[in-house]
């Protein structure tokens, strides 16, 4: 069969790329399984597979496998992780901010407090864009329209309850507009929202920086605000929400969690492995290629961040009436 030849070649390519970096060092872990609660190809899956490569390239963990368990915004994978990986010190799960919303929207019986936070890896800031032909030049033009008639401003972004939706609600709230009154038009991922913005069918677009970056650079879309704390080094000309008087900072972060019920020592071992993995050239290259912002935060610092982040997201999801029950 022809396919076996092709796959053998592919396997060879995979193996050779894994052999590129073989610096021997103390091997703490024999094998680790990373669960990506998403279909292959998506952001969480890419994170899991990049981490797989990083862990193996640095000889930090001998054998790393990636398991995909997509469905319901990752909550199906989370439920499986909580029940069947309990106490297993050799499993990790990729997840992120999106899941906090998904847990509430889907009425998931399990949540992130049941798993062990290990480290926040990367993130992506949200950006507000209008089409190049739009009359809106800066954020204040948009907020003026919003205050005058919230229904006249249609927001194009990802699915209901996604970070895009939550950011729109937070912006409305901070300018004194009832967040439930925003006219949010949910789109399936990919280019659907972009097309609606480029075609001028919605007033403003909101999504991760990476999704709009090509259009912004080509001058087809105008970025009017970014949700980072400070201006990003490589996009100095896009002002933050904060400097335009809207006190909202939001990053769509991705992180690794350990199984429920693992010991402190087991947790420390996994965190140490991740600490090493993010220093490998393989990981650095991944961040570079995918334009992911490095938001590395591990151990207790990550736990502290989570304790503040979860209620903040939960509050806005509840305000929007998206939470089930």
């Amino acid at each position: 069969m022809k396919i076996t030849q092709a796959t053998r070649r592919l396997a060879a390519a995979l193996a050779s790329s894994a052999l590129l970096f073989t610096t021997p060092c103390a091997m703490a872990l024999e094998a680790v399984k990373i669960l990506a609660p998403a279909a292959p190809g998506g952001g969480w899956d890419q994170t899991a597979r990049s981490m797989q490569r990083a862990l193996q390239s640095g000889d930090i963990v001998k054998r790393v496998t990636v398991d995909n368990k997509p469905g319901a915004g990752g909550t199906i994978g989370l439920a499986q992780f909580v029940t069947s990986s309990k106490g297993d010190p050799q499993t990790m799960m990729v997840t992120g901010m999106v899941m906090i919303g998904a847990i509430l929207v889907n009425g998931s019986p399990v949540n992130l407090t049941q798993v062990t936070p290990l480290a926040r890896l990367t993130g992506e800031y949200e950006v507000l864009v209008v089409s190049a032909a739009s009359k809106i030049q800066k954020l204040s033009d948009l907020t003026a329209l919003l205050k005058a008639n919230p229904g006249s401003v249609s927001w194009g972004g990802g699915s209901a309850g996604a970070p895009d939706h939550l950011l729109a609600a937070m912006i409305a709230k901070s300018v004194g507009v009832d967040p439930t009154k925003i006219n949010y038009i949910a789109h399936a991922g990919g280019g659907e929202a972009q097309a609606a913005i480029l075609g001028g069918h919605v007033t403003v677009g909101v999504s991760g920086w990476g999704e709009f970056a090509p259009q912004i650079k080509a001058g087809k879309l105008r970025a009017i605000a970014i949700s980072s704390e400070q201006r990003l080094p490589d996009v100095k000309d896009v002002p933050t929400l904060k400097e335009q008087g809207i006190d909202v900072v939001m990053a769509n972060w991705r992180a690794l969690f350990g199984a429920p019920g693992i010991s402190e020592a087991q947790k420390a071992e996994l965190v140490a492995a991740i600490d090493k993995a993010v220093k490998t050239p393989s990981w650095k290259e991944t961040l570079d290629k995918n334009e992911w912002t490095d938001l590395y935060l591990s151990g207790d610092a990550f736990k502290k961040f989570l304790d503040a982040e979860q209620p903040r997201i939960a509050e806005i999801v509840n305000t929007l009436g998206l939470a089930k029950k």
């Binding site: 990919g190 280019g191 097309a195 090509p214 080509a218 334009e291």
Partner: peptide
């Protein structure tokens, strides 16, 4: 640089992997 389906979206990330911006 607009992906109109799942395959197109993946091809877009392939472009980006090589530092290319379709458009």
């Amino acid at each position: 640089g607009l992906p109109t389906g799942a395959t197109a979206a993946i091809m877009l990330s392939a472009f980006q992997q090589y530092g290319l911006q379709p458009g």
